[in-house]
Design a protein around this nucleic acid. Structure first.
Ligand SMILES: [Mn+2]
Ligand SMILES: [Mn+2]
Ligand SMILES: [Zn+2]
Ligand SMILES: [Zn+2]
Lengths: 138, 138
DNA sequence: AAATATTTGCAACTCTGTTGCAAAATACTG
DNA sequence: CAGTATTTTGCAACAGAGTTGCAAATATTT
């Protein structure tokens, strides 16, 4: 796992720092999406707030994590599992938010359904945000 | 139109105040969703920031407007067109955000597609957030 | 028109996120 | 491996969004 972390950072051309290693580790260990606040708690005041923000920003730019839109307007982040690269994300999968535990999951194996737009509208991207009860809470 | 505004407020059991009349009017006049900032600009400092927040909150509670999730995490509001009541919203339609002009539309006549969830997950709601170019900007 | 209930505006506050800059850590070079 | 150049970090300060308590103003009820 330590290997994986270093590799991912190097592959993205990022210098190896404590905060980057630790935050990336948190994502690799978690099976659901993390918000900024989660990371601050989990890294228990090891790093400055600002460092966490900047690290997340960097990871998004490098295609390591992606942001997840949410109905409650709290930004969450999750590992990119497709082949995302710096500047180009390909994470058009369904996201699911559990009403009970609040956990947010990337449903990689759930197809994004077709959307019909009115005349004159040009589609670029579709985000699907499902909510309900997760398999733990149902 | 003045009639409509008064009626809507009365039907929801709300007292008739300048701010409520004005803000509701803005929604009726606009054909796309409005963010808090838009409303502040459009009502050009007629009302206090806090009043606008509270009015929007009240309208959401009463089922007059609904919030729209967005990828950029800026809350937008639009009139409920279905039969939403206090506490119960039924606005499961597709929302479209234009990449160019930023306008957000409720696509009432676009069907919400079917979503298949993994085993053990219970679906309650699906939000679809499409983006691209609107008919004005394409 | 007076009494009651609701809403407004203000001030103060919290929470989230950003920026500039000096100090510290990392990467590069010989 | 030490010395230098580059990048990243932490701090302080700031900006913006949203919330709350409370007295004054407005709306509703009688
Ligand atoms: Mn995802
Ligand atoms: Mn809508
Ligand atoms: Zn759950
Ligand atoms: Zn447009």
């Amino acid at each position: 796992m330590k290997e994986g972390i270093t590799n991912i950072l190097k592959k993205s051309g990022l210098s190896l720092t404590d905060s980057r290693r630790r935050i990336l580790q948190l994502f690799l260990e978690s099976n659901n999406a993390l918000a900024h606040a989660d990371i601050e708690k989990l890294s228990s005041d090891q790093f400055d707030r600002v460092t966490v923000y900047r690290t997340l920003q960097t990871f998004v730019e490098k295609g390591i994590i992606h942001t997840i839109p949410s109905a409650d307007n709290a930004v969450r982040y999750a590992l990119c599992q497709d082949e995302c690269s710096a500047g180009h994300h390909h994470d058009e999968h369904v996201h699911f938010v559990c009403d009970v535990c609040g956990a947010t999951f990337c449903l990689q194996h759930t197809a994004i359904p077709q959307v019909q737009l009115p005349n004159g509208f040009k589609l670029r991207q579709v985000d699907v945000l499902a909510s309900g009860k997760c398999n733990q809470c149902a």
